[in-house]
Amino acid sequence: MALESYIREGLKKKDILLMTHIVLGYPSFDASMEIIRTMVKSGVDIMELQIPFSEPTADGPVIVQASQRSIEKGATVERCLELAGWAAKSFNIPFLIMSYYNIPFKYGVERFAGAMAGAGLKGAIIADIPPEEGMDYLAAMQKHNMEPIMLISPTTTSERMKFIASFAKGFIYCVARKGVTGKETDLTKELEDYLKRCRREAGLPLAVGFGIKDKADIDFLKGKAEIAVIGTRSIDIMEKKGIGPVGDFIRSLR
């Protein structure tokens, strides 16, 4: 099923969907498998699997550190794709790859899209590829029926939102605030207005990420977006309390 239909279907039963994010291979590949299992069991609707990159310029300290550790412990792109393939085969929710453009570029953009399709993944979120630079990437994704999730931000003009949305599939990832991942986001009228603007221009379901941390945040997003994205917070909990409590945390968000 295409991502957009999956999301629309899901919204018949839930008032907002949850997408969680993990860094593959952190703290280990075995742990990544257990985290995925735990998250799916706790009712996560979509998962974003980050292939670590050594220069993650759009990420904050927690994900930077996790990426670095994963690479130091020997995470390769091949191994990450294998794990993602295992996840897609084992669980009945959509899985997406998240990374930076050098990862598919070095692998071969076309070959990368093919490998994602072969692994049963649904699409990808690439943090540093504006559409102006993305023609090869977008063509490869289309060829292999992979959905490119595009990002928009509070600094994106309405005209540009339309432009970006014209290349997007599945949903639009709305970055909730300026800055990098990790810091909290204030739930303000400004955020609400921004999401209204996204809604008007995008024509696709909206996911909101960067700094979403608890039930109050998610309640705020209900009716304003289709998907709430939990990133740094679950890594934090895993680091401080372990994998089991990540499941408790996710169940507490509903």
């Binding site: 759009a58 943090a127 540093d128 931000s153 509070p154 600094t155 994106t156």
Partner: peptide
């Protein structure tokens, strides 16, 4: 090759 937040 920049994140969307910095495009403007």
């Amino acid at each position: 090759y920049i994140p969307e937040i910095l495009v403007s």
